[in-house]
Each structure stands twice: as structure tokens, then as C-alpha cells.
Design a protein around this nucleic acid. Sequence first.
DNA 1: CTTGCATGTCACTGTGCGGTGACATATGCT
DNA 2: AGCATATGTCACCGCACAGTGACATGCAAG
Lengths: 200, 200
Amino acid sequence: MRDADATKQRLIEAVDALIVEQGIGALGVNAVAQQAGVDKVLIYRYFGGWSGLLQAYAEGEAFWPSTQDLLGECPKEILALPPAERWQLVLSRYVRELSKRPRTLEILAWEVTARNEITARLEAVREKRALELLSHLGDGCDPDVDLGALAAILSAAVHYLLLRGREIRGYSGIDLQSEAGWQRLEQTMARLLTAYFQSN
Amino acid sequence: MRDADATKQRLIEAVDALIVEQGIGALGVNAVAQQAGVDKVLIYRYFGGWSGLLQAYAEGEAFWPSTQDLLGECPKEILALPPAERWQLVLSRYVRELSKRPRTLEILAWEVTARNEITARLEAVREKRALELLSHLGDGCDPDVDLGALAAILSAAVHYLLLRGREIRGYSGIDLQSEAGWQRLEQTMARLLTAYFQSN
DNA sequence: CTTGCATGTCACTGTGCGGTGACATATGCT
DNA sequence: AGCATATGTCACCGCACAGTGACATGCAAG
């Protein structure tokens, strides 16, 4: 083929395929080269090494749901809702968007155990997005309420439950792999939010 | 020393030391043998191999806070509290107990990325304990309330935030490595619980 | 004292890993 | 056409890993 750009692309796609199919644990120079059907030496030539390839992959991929994904096409309508409903809606969308993204879940899991430049960058992007979204969600809320802590708790719960749900069913009596289980979770989160915003 | 039991013990302790000092990622036959100051072949002789040693370690260690740790010495007093306060207290203790247990956090992190016999067993123990505790916490609550989901959400949030706090500071604007950050989190959880139980 | 076994040491195999140097060949420019 | 270089192939290194076989030695029972 003699086409460097295409080869780079194949390597990056191979990283993605391996992550989705086998998980981050299976990732490595040899595995990626084989998956791409390419000699591994090209990883070093084109990306300067393993971490270079990972970085290229991380930059090219949109792991994180966009603000639009979460607020929808008519953010004004959503932002006009009372706080509890607004948060419920966004949280529900957040769950849906994340569960559609096996790559993102894999990355989230990776961040829990590994710490390196790649995860650090991805985390920085995430944090920025979170704060950005948070600024939108705060309109019209009682300033006395700690929205940062609220978002931290709820998103943390969602992250953990989605991650565990990839492998186990029963968690605190909830079936994390069934629609019904997640309905119980979302309903309880919704009630928590309603009660919380009502009480202030 | 010519003492098989002592050697077994040293190996198990070496596993523990490595987990605490270097994390699960650093665990391996060679590393453990070196840490124990013992030949690795003894791992195979005494434990039948690597997974045997891990299993022996897992069985011997008490990773999980006991019901007593969480309910305290006078469970009756705690169980006599109104639901919101009861849950607040237990949750707060749960955070404190877990943050004292680096091994347990390491295992929790491990479970997120790896799935094997060991993690499966540990998870089973955890789930059993959780349901047990849950049965105590449900007294006098509105039966309409989904306590399983509530416990899942809150414990998931705590797990995730504790795990992330080992490596990052900023999460949704909260400093996960400071007393102040955790006070914000606990206070928000407390308010959520109060509002939640009040509204039913 | 001698024999048998538990305990421990050492050297080794095979595998997969990340990484590199030397070579082959297609492509595009002059 | 001929050359330089970008592109790709291949064989290889050193390392760490899990696991094993053969040997040495202390101890306890006969």
C-alpha cells in the first residue's frame, strides 16, 4: 500500500479495536501491530513509540459525551426546567451516553488502576467538561446548595455502577445488567434530586 | 529456618506488603518471593502455584469493615435513630473505615479491571455483607423506599470517590485529597438522605 | 548411625514483552 | 533512466515473567 497516513490510521484503529474487543489490559505494541497487520517498527517510526501512539489515539477519539449530547438539541428548554427535573434529565442522559461508549468505560476503568500521562490528559479534559456542564446546570439553583459535591456524588455513583455492571450482576441487591435494575437506580436518583432541591 | 509454616506466613505477608506498598499491579511470583526473601519454587510447593497463594491471602485477610465497625459498639442505639440520621452515621463510618484500608481500596480497584476467581469470591463476601447490613438499616423505613438502590448509589459513589482520590485531587471541583473536600461530600450526602427520607 | 523425607537452593526453560538495526523495495523527483 | 528517500520487512536483543527439574541439607524416626 505504501501509504503512511493509511498505515497510521490502521494502527490507531487497531488500538481502538483492541480496547473495545479485549480491554485495555490486552493493549501492547505487539498486539496492536498484529491487529493492524503491520510491522511494529512502524509504531516507533510514525509515533515515536508506544506512548506516542496512545497519545495520538487519545487525541483523535471523542470519549466523553459532549455538552450537546447531555443537554440535547434544545438546551434552552432543558435549562428552563426546574432544577430537580433538569438534573434528572441530564443524569439519565449521562447514563445512556456512557453505556453506549465501551471505549470510555474502558478508559474510566483504566484510570482507576493506572496513572500516566495519557490518563492524566483525559482526566483533565473530563474535569473541564464537567465544570462546564456544571455551570449550565447551576442556573436558578439555591446558591446555598453544593452543586459540585452533588455532581461528584451522582457521577461517581454512575461511573462505578456502570463499571461494575460490565462484570457483575448483583450489587447491593440490584441487577446491574438489567433494564429493571437501572430503572430502580434512576428512579432513586430522581427521588433523591427531587427531595434535595425541594428541601432548600 | 526450616519451618514450612513460617515460610508460608512470610509469603502471605509478602503479598500483603507488596499490595500496600506498590499496588496490585506489582504483584507476581518473582516479586513476592523476593519480598519474602524466599525461593519462588516454594510458592508452587506450598500453595500449588500463584493463584493458590492469592487465594490463601484472600481468605486470611479481613478486607471488609465488619458490621460492628459500621454500627459501632451499641448497634441498638444507632438502629433507634430515625432513618436519615442512621444512614448518615453508617455512611460516614463507612468512608472512614474504607479510607483506613489501603488493601481494601486496592482490591476494589482491582475488581474494576480484572475478573478472576479471587475477585469473584471477594465480591461475593462483600455482597453478602452489604445485604446483611442493609437488612439492619431498613428498620422503620417506609417500605415504599428502595433501600437497595439507595445503598447501591451511595456506596458506589463512596467507592469511586475514594479510589479516584488516591490519585487525583480535582473531581467535579471537589478536592478528593483534603478533609474539606470530604466534608463537602459527606454533608451533601447527609442532606440528600435527610431530604429523601423526609419526603416519604 | 543411617535412612527417608521435608525443606530449601540453584540453574534452567520457554514465552511474550518493548525496542532496535540492517536490509529490501516502491515511489516520486530531476 | 537513475537516484534519494519514504515506506515496509525481517531478524534480532535484553528483559521480566511463570513455571520446572535436579540437587543440597537439615531433621526426625528407626
